[in-house]
Structures are given as structure tokens and as C-alpha cells.
């Protein structure tokens, strides 16, 4: 997995999000975005087909507790289905990037 911040609040992730290390990197990068005073995060998961449960728990905390406005753009329909199964489409403002 490769992660980089773009613009003021965009976080771009390529590769599959799978390991504990991936979860830590995502959390650190998003925390960096928020530390700059942003109250919204635009997360792009370019080709990941999964998301670790630790990351899901962290994103839920951002939305529910910290009132961060999150939007997630996914490039793989399998990840979209996963988030749909978890009933998180609305909460995370998930959008599937059309191929």
C-alpha cells in the first residue's frame, strides 16, 4: 500500500489495505490532515478491495465522535460492496469511481 496526502485534505491510497502497518499509516496521515486544522477528509482508495477493521473503527470514530466530514471514493467495486454490506455508504459518503 502507498499513501500520500494531496492538496489540503485529500488522502490518496494505492494498493490493497490489508496489514496493521497499513492501518497505522492511514491513521497517521489522516491525523496529519486534521492537525492542519481541516474538518473534512477526502479519502481516495484507488484500487484497494478491502479495508482493515481497525481503519473502519478509526473512520467511524472520526465521523461519530470528532464530527469530521468524511468522503470516501473507491475505485474497486468489491470494496464498495464491502462498505455497503457494513451499512457504511451513507456514514462515510462513499462514492464508486466509474471505470
Amino acid at each position: 500500500m502507498h499513501i500520500e496526502g494531496k492538496g489540503s485534505n485529500q488522502v490518496m491510497i494505492t494498493g490493497n489495505v490489508k496489514s496493521v502497518d497499513d492501518s497505522i499509516k492511514i491513521k497517521e496521515t489522516i491525523n496529519g490532515v486534521l492537525a492542519r486544522g481541516n474538518r473534512s477528509v477526502d479519502l481516495h482508495l484507488v484500487d484497494s478491495l478491502s479495508l482493515t477493521s481497525t481503519t473502519i473503527g478509526y473512520l467511524m470514530k472520526l465521523v461519530n465522535q470528532d464530527q469530521v466530514k468524511l468522503s470516501v471514493t473507491v475505485g474497486d467495486s468489491r470494496l464498495y460492496t464491502l462498505l455497503e454490506d457494513l451499512a457504511l455508504l451513507q456514514k462515510f459518503n462513499v462514492r464508486l469511481l466509474e471505470p
Binding site: 467511524m60 461519530n64 457494513l86 451499512a87 456514514k91
Partner: peptide, 29 residues
Amino acid sequence: FGLPPMLVRGLDGSVRRIPGANPPLCIHS
């Protein structure tokens, strides 16, 4: 709450998925 959809098979063999309507539970559900 955030479980994979329930799979239900009818007596006629038809299968349907029933997704959970709730996200995973957390302290702010």
C-alpha cells in the same frame, strides 16, 4: 450491525441476501 448479509434460502431453493441495516456498533451508535 455490520455483519455480512444474511443468506436466506427458500423452500423452493431461491436464495436472497438480506444486508444488515446498521453499521457496526461503537460508543456513538
